[in-house]
């Protein structure tokens, strides 16, 4: 470790693939002399306060918390899209400072290029990350991942011709096709209807069984987290959101949605998550009422 002050978290981080150390995200308020002159000052906003997290290789980790708690900010920091104010993020012992193809990102709003077909969207990602790969090889990989997410036959369609569920399959295929070390998913099923969401969760579970990649999933669905995760990270409400607790999800794989509740621990874990979430959400609502408009 180059860092001068060594603390307990650093020592244990050798086996972790992804390690977050004392990560803060503070949005500075308006405090310049112009703002003071105009009486428009506002205090700094602490979004994330002292996040410490370690993710082992080939585990599926969900981050769950009340809405507005900074889950997405945390994921954007790991993706390199938002710089942290303080703290370090290490992927395989290497400090992260900007976005890169070692992390595949699945976006909530799919973020497909509307002018590209399904096939072109995926090949664009492969070509960007592996510019020296032959076109034949690029196409083979694109086809392989289109098959993996079950989109064969839709390769030549444009995004506006696809349903939300199909769009997100493209998003997942695109993120996986560049062979990232870690997959980051930001509420990937949030914009889908309940039936499609369940279907896509099963698909992600199936794909994960095949790929066994490290995944970080942001969600606010307890069932989703329990079905997919090895670990669930519970976050507190913002501002100054922290990690409240990390739960181990011990159910054997492959898991089935229908039979998951047969495990005795299921209800206990679900109750704990529900209690945490409802408690935090209630506090958020109360805080909102107290704030003067």
């Amino acid at each position: 470790m180059i860092s001068s002050h060594v603390d307990p978290v650093d020592i244990s981080s050798t086996s972790a693939q992804l390690a977050l150390n004392h990560v803060f995200k503070i949005y500075p308020g308006r405090q310049s002399w112009q703002d003071k002159l105009l009486r428009q000052t506002s205090p700094d906003f602490v979004a994330l306060a002292d996040i410490n997290l370690e993710v082992e290789a080939n585990t599926f980790v969900s981050i769950i918390g009340p809405s507005g708690c900074g889950k997405s900010t945390l994921l954007n920091i790991i993706a390199g899209l938002t710089p942290p104010t303080r703290g370090s993020i290490k992927l395989n012992e290497v400090e992260i400072s900007k976005p890169g193809p070692d992390r595949g990102v699945v976006f909530q709003n799919y973020a497909l290029m509307p002018w590209m077909t399904v096939f072109e969207n995926i090949r664009f990602a492969i070509e960007t990350v592996y510019p020296h790969m032959t076109i034949v090889e690029q196409k083979n990989i694109a086809r392989e991942y289109i098959d993996l997410v079950g989109l064969r036959g839709a390769e030549r369609k444009h995004p506006h011709e696809l349903s939300g569920g199909m769009k997100q399959r493209v998003g997942i295929a695109r993120a996986l096709a560049i062979n990232p070390k870690i997959l980051l998913m930001d509420e990937p099923f949030g914009a889908l209807d309940a039936l499609t969401r369940g279907f896509l969760q099963d698909e992600v579970a199936r794909i994960w069984e095949q790929q066994r990649q490290t995944v970080i999933l942001i969600t606010h669905s307890i069932e989703e987290a329990l079905l997919l995760s090895d670990k669930i990270v519970m976050m507190t409400r913002g501002p100054a959101a922290r990690i409240a607790e990390v739960l181990d999800i011990p159910f054997p794989r492959p898991r089935r949605r229908e039979s998951l509740d047969q495990y005795p621990a299921y209800h206990e874990l679900k109750a704990e998550l529900e209690m945490h979430l409802s408690q935090e959400t209630r506090a958020v609502e109360e805080a909102r009422i107290k704030v003067k408009p």
Binding site: G80, L81, P99, V105, F107, Y110, M113, T128, V129
Partner: peptide, 22 residues
């Protein structure tokens, strides 16, 4: 759309490629 720009960033696309292709 900032979303597609973020895609280009996460893929590590060069400035030129981002302008030309996105």
């Amino acid at each position: 759309d900032p979303a597609v720009l973020n895609v280009a960033r996460t893929l590590g696309a060069s400035r030129w490629r981002t302008i030309w292709k996105v």
